[in-house]
Amino acid sequence: MKQWIAFWTILGKDTRSYYLKPPNISWGLLFPLAWTGMFFIRSGSGLGDIVSLLPGVVTVAILFGTTSVLAVTVTFEKKGRTFERLLLAPISLELLMLAKTSGAILFGIANAAVPVVMAAFFADLSHVAWGIAVPAVVLMAIASTFLGLFIAVSVSEVFEAQTFSNFFRFPMIFLCGLFFPIAKLPIVVRPLSYLFPVTYGADVLHAAFGAENTMPLGLDFALLGVFCAVLFALSLHNIRRRWIA
């Protein structure tokens, strides 16, 4: 019970200090908007086609919304020593890190909702399979938050965290099958695609938004779950090894 008071307080503080700050909100709104606009113009198709762009835009919104904030909420706080205060609290490291990441997960989900809500004004979304789209978005937000966490706890400087997350983000976007089908990628980079959690999320989103999925959906969900668990465990391991050294 007492641990949960700590959990909600940490989550509440992060939300107020980071996620509800104007720069973060505008970034969360503008970035997916810009991507939507860019691909929409490039595709040169009618407004009805906007639905086919949604999986890609939603994925980009999640990926950028979640991974970038961990550099601040974790690496920056470690550097400013406020993270030590959290490590001194009588709560388990697991719950502490869930509190530190829940905000980013919710932020990622909120970012994902932005392009969907906007698309609803222009196109008919009644055929979308929400029953699989929503869980996929949630799992992708969790997996990419934990990827951001893993990066954030593996470095010491904020700029390193940001550089590293780009190192993962851009290849992921281009190799996950959203903008270029994996089948059309050069054969040598194809295995890389399957190392990224986003690939499996994108596959589910394709199905949910009316296109073809390339793998069984059950497998997609299972692998997303495995990515979440493994990245979280690796992050905790790194905190114990590097920060409580």
Binding site: M1, I5, A6, T9, I10, K13, S17, A89, P90, I91
Partner: peptide, 15 residues
């Protein structure tokens, strides 16, 4: 955070 908020935050860490 303000001084008051900091103390309240720390108190919450202890439940």
């Amino acid at each position: 955070l303000t001084g008051f908020e900091n103390l309240c935050f720390c108190a919450a860490l202890y439940g």
